[in-house]
Nucleic acid binder design. Structure first.
Lengths: 150, 150
DNA sequence: GTCCATGCAAACTGTTTGCACGCGC
DNA sequence: GCGCGTGCAAACAGTTTGCATGGAC
């Protein structure tokens, strides 16, 4: 059973240096509870340290992902979005009209996945469930099952 | 209730022209039951019609996606993969070692999603469930729960 | 014949990399 | 001080677009 450390502790105990830039990226993701993309993280980082570069943001994100501190999600926009790893797994819905992202938990999904993958002898490391459609606001008047398929 | 037409019928009844190139892309996806990316589709298409261009493949895929004839999946490689829309929804597992993609059905997942989204007033149009980990072959000796999180 | 679709090449977006300098340990 | 990490700019992959020509209807 893995003990939970602070991001800073994880970075150091994995043998990586704790640089100003890495700490900055961690902080930005820990503070913001949105799903930022690399560019947005870079912009925020630049606000606090004008010298940081986009390449470093990407390199930091790769390292943080590898150590499990952050997770990357594909939210249907064709590029990555990042968030600090949460204690309990959750999934995402994105609205096709307004772009809003709704997070939700779904323990049943994990159960079903676990059962299925046990049968198929698959060792699952990551689970991404991504829904898209229309949120409660944008879905008004969209009862015309035209592209509603579920 | 939407009637099922042949891809060709769907294209024409949506008011689009049925060109040699569009038919070719449809055929390639219908024949191959793999998850091809745009480049792979382009290579196969060139084999049958040397004049086709990659841009047209992309344009055709966009149109076929919009009409529901094909689906795009993000299989964790950072670029899109395409397959002909199947009658019953299914999901994907990709092996981190050998890259193999395993398809599986999971009606329970759809049920859970439907229930949750009903509560949250979300109208769901698309459901993507993507697992990654190690397949039965590559997973041997990987019992050391180090990065196994589910 | 009309107008949408195509081919080509150039543009664009997101991401990665090579290399010399900088800084955490 | 050693060696990993950074900044910069250039390279890269995947995808999109502008424009003149071609082909479906």
């Amino acid at each position: 059973m893995k003990t939970l450390h602070s991001p800073v502790g994880v970075i150091r105990s994995a043998g990586y240096r704790l640089t100003r830039q890495r700490r900055l990226v961690v902080d930005i993701l820990a503070e913001s509870h949105e799903h930022l993309d690399a560019e947005a993280i870079y912009q925020r980082a630049k606000g606090r340290d004008a010298r940081i570069s986009l390449a470093t943001v990407y390199r930091s994100l790769a390292l943080l992902k590898q150590t499990g501190i952050v997770q990357e999600h594909s939210l249907g926009e064709g590029h990555g979005h990042f968030e600090a790893t949460q204690p309990s797994p959750h999934y995402h819905f994105t609205c096709r009209t307004c772009g809003k992202v709704v997070e939700f938990e779904a323990p049943q999904v994990l159960g079903a996945v676990r059962r299925l993958c046990g049968k198929m002898q698959l060792k699952v490391v990551e689970v991404h469930l991504l829904l898209s459609g229309y949120c409660s606001h944008c879905g008004i008047g969209r009862m015309d099952g035209d592209d509603i398929q579920i």
